[in-house]
Design a protein around this nucleic acid. Structure first.
Lengths: 191, 191
DNA sequence: TCGACTATGTACAGACCGGTACACTTTGAG
DNA sequence: CTCAAAGTGTACCGGTCTGTACATAGTCGA
C-alpha cells in the first residue's frame, strides 16, 4: 500500500530519533535503517526538520492514545484516573527501550521557544495538561488548574528522575505525592 | 595567570553549551567565541567530551553553590529551606538566559547510561537528592527518602514545565505542592 | 511496441565536524 | 645575543552533515 510507506518511514525515524537523539541521527543513517533511497526520503520529507515534526506528531498520537487507554483500563473515576496515570508511567519506565520523554528531549535539542519543534512539544504538554486539569475538575478539586499542573509536574519530574537515576522508583514516589495532593485538594473542597 | 585561562575557557564553553546545546555547538564556534586558537583549546582539553565534562563540573559547582546559598538566605529551618528551594527556583526561571537544567539536557543528548556525561549528570542529581533527603530528615518527616525524592520530583517537573510552557508559573504550583506534602509528612510523624 | 511519466538509486556538492601537522612567535637561561 | 623550549595561529585532514543532480528502472495508456 502506498500511503503506509510514508508512515513506515516516520515510524522508523521515530524509533531511531528516540533511541539516538535528533542531532546525532543523520539522514544517511535513517536511509540505511529504513532501506529506502535518499531520494525517496526527500520526496516524502523536504527537510530533516519536516521528518522530525512528523515523527513527533506520530509520537504525540501514539503516546496519548496509549496513556489514555491504559488509564481508562486501570480506573473509571476521575480521582482514580489521576492516580492511575502514575501506574501507567511506572509500566512505561519498565519497558526495555524506555528513554524518557521524547518531547523533553526535543526541547533540549531545539531550545528556541519559537522553533517549530519546540512549539510542537509544548503543544503536546498542553494537551496533557488540559486533560489532567479536566480530571481534576471532574474530581471536584478546589483549584483544578493548580492540581492539574501539579499532576503534570509530578509526571515530568518522575520521567526525568527515572532517566537520571535509571530506576522506576520515582513513579512510586510521584504516585504517593499525587495521592496526598489529590486528597488535600478534594478535602479542601468539601470543607 | 595560567590556571584562570583554562577556567575562562570552561566558563565560556559552559555558556555556549547551555545556550545552544552540545551537539549543536562545534569546537570552531567555541574557538571563535573564546578568542583562543584551536591548538590552545586542544592543549587544555584533549577532546570535546573532556571540555563538556569540565563545563558540567563547573555548572555543578556554580549551581549548587548558588542554590544552597540562596536557600540559606531565605530560610533557616529545615522545613523552611525545603519550601524556600522553590522560591529560589522561581527566581532562576525569571532570569533572562534561563534555559532549563543543563544536566537534563546533557542526559537528553547523551543517553547511554554508562556514558561519562550521563553519569556526571546523574551524580549532580544524586547530590541534590541527598541534600533534600537530609532536610526532610531534619524536618522530622516520616519517610525522609520518600519526601526528599518527591521534592526533587517537583523541582525537576517545575524546571521542565517552565521550559515547555515558557512561564515561571510551575514554580508556584510546585511550591504549593511541596507545602502540602511537607505538612502531610510531618503531621504523619506527629500522629 | 512505443513513448511519456513517475519512482528509485547513485554519486556527489558544499558546508561543517572533531582533531592535527607544522610553521611561527614569544620567552627565558646562559 | 643565542638558542632551545613552550605557546600560538593557520591551514588542513578524513569523515559526516543536509540536500541535490542525474541516470536508470518501472508503469501505464495507446
Amino acid at each position: 500500500m502506498r500511503p503506509s510507506k510514508k508512515d513506515e518511514l516516520v515510524s522508523k525515524a521515530l524509533e531511531v530519533f528516540y533511541r539516538d537523539g535528533f542531532h546525532a541521527t543523520g539522514m544517511d543513517k535513517l536511509v540505511v535503517e529504513t532501506g529506502v533511497s535518499k531520494t525517496s526520503m526527500y520526496k516524502h520529507f523536504r527537510t530533516k526538520e519536516e521528518l522530525i515534526l512528523a515523527a513527533l506528531d506520530l509520537r504525540d498520537t501514539n503516546f496519548r492514545t496509549w496513556f489514555l487507554t491504559r488509564v481508562a483500563e486501570l480506573a473509571d473515576t476521575p480521582e482514580g484516573q489521576l492516580i492511575a496515570g502514575f501506574d501507567a508511567l511506572a509500566e512505561w519506565f519498565e519497558e526495555d527501550n524506555y528513554r524518557g520523554c521524547m518531547f523533553i528531549k526535543a526541547c533540549s535539542e531545539f531550545q528556541e521557544v519559537d522553533h517549530p519543534i519546540h512549539q510542537q512539544a509544548a503543544r503536546h504538554k498542553q494537551i496533557l495538561l488540559d486533560h489532567l486539569t479536566g480530571l481534576a475538575q471532574a474530581a471536584g478539586a478546589k483549584d483544578p488548574d493548580c492540581l492539574g499542573s501539579q499532576m503534570l509536574l509530578l509526571k515530568e519530574g518522575a520521567i526525568v528522575s527515572s532517566v537520571l537515576i535509571s530506576s522506576g522508583a520515582p513513579a512510586r514516589d510521584a504516585k504517593a505525592a499525587a495521592q496526598v495532593l489529590l486528597d488535600s485538594a478534594v478535602k479542601h473542597q468539601a470543607a
